[in-house]
Design a protein around this nucleic acid. Sequence first.
DNA 1: CTAATTCCTAGTTATTTACTTGGAATTCGT
DNA 2: ACGAATTCCAAGTAAATAACTAGGAATTAG
Lengths: 149, 149
Amino acid sequence: MRLSTKGRYGLKAMFDLALNDGSGPISLGTIAERQGISIHYLEQLVSPLRKAGLLKSVRGAQGGYLLAKQPSEISVREILELLEGSLAPASCVTDGENSCDHSDFCVSRMIYDRIYESINEVVDNISLQDMLDEQYRNLQDSIPDMKNN
Amino acid sequence: MRLSTKGRYGLKAMFDLALNDGSGPISLGTIAERQGISIHYLEQLVSPLRKAGLLKSVRGAQGGYLLAKQPSEISVREILELLEGSLAPASCVTDGENSCDHSDFCVSRMIYDRIYESINEVVDNISLQDMLDEQYRNLQDSIPDMKNN
DNA sequence: CTAATTCCTAGTTATTTACTTGGAATTCGT
DNA sequence: ACGAATTCCAAGTAAATAACTAGGAATTAG
């Protein structure tokens, strides 16, 4: 039940962009270095995010990526689902009836449905803005002097 | 974020045993056939469940497995955690601080924590007895005549 | 024109999953 | 006492997936 590096790195990258929202395009090189991720690997993660319209790219020198919407308008769910596929704990939850053998009238499936719902409830209701707010709160609480970082 | 076959098959097997609770030991061969799982693979799943005290075994001919406790006393969480390991979406959630690089003051981790909690909230509160109840309800609703199966 | 970038496709390696194989130990029924 | 049915145990293996790497074309600021 682990998220893969795709989801985790992708979320990190999006959060990095959110932190720098408004300062013009940020290159993958910069993000890769800051987050400790291979730049070529990052490219692959960023590509679907761009195609889905979560971020914009600027090509050429001094180019890079920017959020395509406000941080408040991008949910963690969108990001994770794009990179991980659906967050369902079993394929029958999203595949409809066909994948399930019905031998036990799918009581197991009822469980997977409920897990799926509860995961979505969480990630649907956290936006990048919420993450920024949380970050700010963390900084205030633990290291008051670092507010300006 | 998928459960592996270990967790899913293991849950199926436990539910099968719950359905037959009280009728003496059920052999893995029977379960394997009913649930469409390789018997040798099932063995591997059942072994940790036995060692953890969720089920008992009876060796030799006419032997098999039985639940070691009442269905109401066995939660889906216990079963899944035994077979899948913790249901945390990232290792930092259960590994403590060491695995996390703190570069973003772990706002990501806050998310993984919340997902983890919400998953546990679900699986903690479903017991094998709840599954039996649900099964019975399903049968009543969809095929009234099959109540006696 | 050049350096810095995105963009694209195709490898490759490492890890994990999902089993299979083989056989010893145990016990019921006859 | 014997044989069939079982649990129990340790390895091995094949397939799938994850996690990258490699190479290069296209674009653009300076």
